[in-house]
Design a protein around this nucleic acid. Structure first.
Lengths: 334, 334
DNA sequence: TAGATTAATGTAAGCGCTTTCATTTTTAAC
DNA sequence: GTTAAAAATGAAAGCGCTTACATTAATCTA
């Protein structure tokens, strides 16, 4: 692989000049520029980005930490971030935290030591203190899906409480009063916030939260399936189920169908996140939108603006969920 | 951020010695090692991986190119690769090709120039020649989901033809003879191979391939939805639909349900890939398994073995699909 | 046309680390 | 107590690039 030195030799100019034309900085006469371009082409020269990073202390890459690489939720987030950044000629290094504190930290360290110019972090586990400290470091950081006191200006998050409120109000307005709730894992902030919204909606309607109608799931189809089975087997009567995300709702509905329960005729369902797939099942899932892509867009543009001075977007910290009414909720009988 | 130099100063040893203890290479006395560890801890020293890469010409990171970052197919692939590599202390840099030749190439260049020790590439568009040339470079490359003559030893792929065969045979054995086919985009090799399997199954049963029952989709829900509408509106009769992947099958089924057609009573469906979601819809989708995770596992282990000398897996190039019978195919009437 | 600007190019010192080779220290062998 | 071999350490030359700063060439001013 040819180095900048080979190019300078062939073109008969200095290293500095080659560097100037490669990076399009400083003044270079057209004649010289042409010579350099020719030499580069002839040698099939491509700059060694590692060396560039080391010398310039800038890597043109931004690190992204998500909790998982698969699943319907993080994919679109990564896609949006990659897309924004790539079109600005920045590159993305992705790491996964796997909902594990040690791995999350390790991933952050990796991205940092990898010389990322900025980090976009969707951290589920690490403490607020850790994140506050992280934000004090010299690498700029945006936090996604999380609101942390003291560094609110670095956070892009969804109003999960409101989302929970919206979902539960909807079934309440349809006359349901025995409402089961399949929650996400409560160590995750968004799961707690959504649950809080649910409780608040219940309270608005003068209803008490009933532990017997509560199940803590895992945000996955399996958890919804299992939760539904537990709820049904408990013998407690209920006519609607609010699920803290669409995946669990899908699992729960699958179980109902298996047991011959009709949805929504016998049981109504609301999900959360509005992922694509449940639009394609029957009944189409009523849910709450989660503008995760918009948040990714915002985070990526923040980086572009703050780190590379390239965007002039107005930073919006808090995104609003919206109720998406489809077919899975029906008026309560009686 | 502390550098190795700071550590050496504080520990009162040379740079070389610090490097030795950081990398655990060469001989260092216990006493010295302890001093260095203390100094590192005290300074919160973390090696600059960029500088390490530049100096050692090894980055401990492997590049992964997929066509998309989202969707139910690539997620699990990335997850598996990341998981294998991470447990061997290697890191993953992911880039997306977006089914576009220029972007695929650019992504490969990026990963290469980024100093990856190896590449795992799921290339859809670039030519075989490009890939052959790529494999001749000094960075080791594994190709996933693709079989290229001349570099077969670098390819990990699925027997798509057999998969197509399996899917179509299944509906044929259930007595269907008017079978519609919703294909993936034909510029993708796997779409072509699956179609070929379909045609072969038809031929086995003495049936001719009928253009009127063919639709070229996009491997996405929307394509299946649209394809189904086109097929239905064409007025051609058919009693079963073979879809080249599960996502299109889901879209197609959604349309049927919207139009009040019962599945599988009136129309049978087979998918391909066995992604998680359609297991949770009704009817549960009969499909063909695609051991994409196993392939990811294999590719990652190949890298571990060939590049880092750490695994001793037996390389398996070709993976076999299997029919997964669930509920979406029913015996043809009459 | 001398003198002052400005443009174009070159020189060389790093960036933080690895690694070869030389040097010093320790251990072993007799 | 020598001496040879082995172990531990250090010195220094890069890895491929960027970037102050210095230098030279070109252009302008009066």
């Amino acid at each position: 692989m040819a180095t900048i030195y080979d190019v300078s030799l062939l073109a008969g100019v200095s290293l500095a000049t080659v560097s100037r034309v490669v990076n399009n900085t400083g003044k270079v006469s057209d004649k010289t520029r042409q010579k350099v371009h020719d030499a580069m082409a002839q040698l099939d020269y491509r700059p060694n980005t590692i060396a560039q990073s080391l010398a310039s202390n800038r890597s043109n890459s931004v690190g992204v930490l998500v909790s998982q690489l698969d699943g319907p939720f993080y994919g679109p987030l990564m896609r949006e971030i990659e897309s924004v950044l790539r079109s600005a000629n920045k590159h993305v290094i992705i790491a996964a935290g796997h909902s594990d504190a040690a791995q999350e930290k390790e991933a952050v360290e990796f991205l940092l030591s990898r010389g990322c110019d900025a980090l976009i972090v969707d951290a589920e586990i690490v403490t607020n203190d850790y994140l506050r400290k992280l934000c004090q470091g010299k690498t700029p950081v945006v936090l996604i899906n999380r609101h942390v006191e003291g560094i609110a200006d670095r956070c892009v998050h969804l109003d999960n409480l409101k989302g929970g409120l919206l979902a539960s109000r909807h079934v309440l307005e349809f006359g349901h009063s025995r409402i089961a709730y399949i929650s996400g894992p409560l160590f995750k902030l968004d799961a707690r916030e959504r649950l809080q919204g649910h409780k608040q909606a219940l309270a608005e309607h003068g209803l008490a939260f009933d532990e017997a109608l509560f199940f803590e799931g895992d945000f996955r189809e399996e958890g919804g399936y299992e939760g539904m089975a537990t709820l049904l087997d408990s013998g407690e009567p209920f006519s609607a189920v609010v699920c803290a995300n669409d995946q669990m709702a899908s699992g729960a509905i699958a179980l109902c169908l298996e047991r011959g329960l009709r949805v929504p005729e016998e049981i109504s369902f609301v999900g959360f996140d509005d992922i694509p797939f449940p639009r394609y099942i029957s009944p189409k899932l009523t849910t709450v939108s989660n503008p995760i892509q918009d948040m990714g867009h915002m985070a990526a543009n923040w980086v572009l603006k703050e780190v590379y001075g390239q965007s002039d977007i107005d930073f919006n910290h808090r995104f609003e969920p919206q109720l998406v009414v489809r077919e899975s909720v029906q008026r309560a009988l009686g």
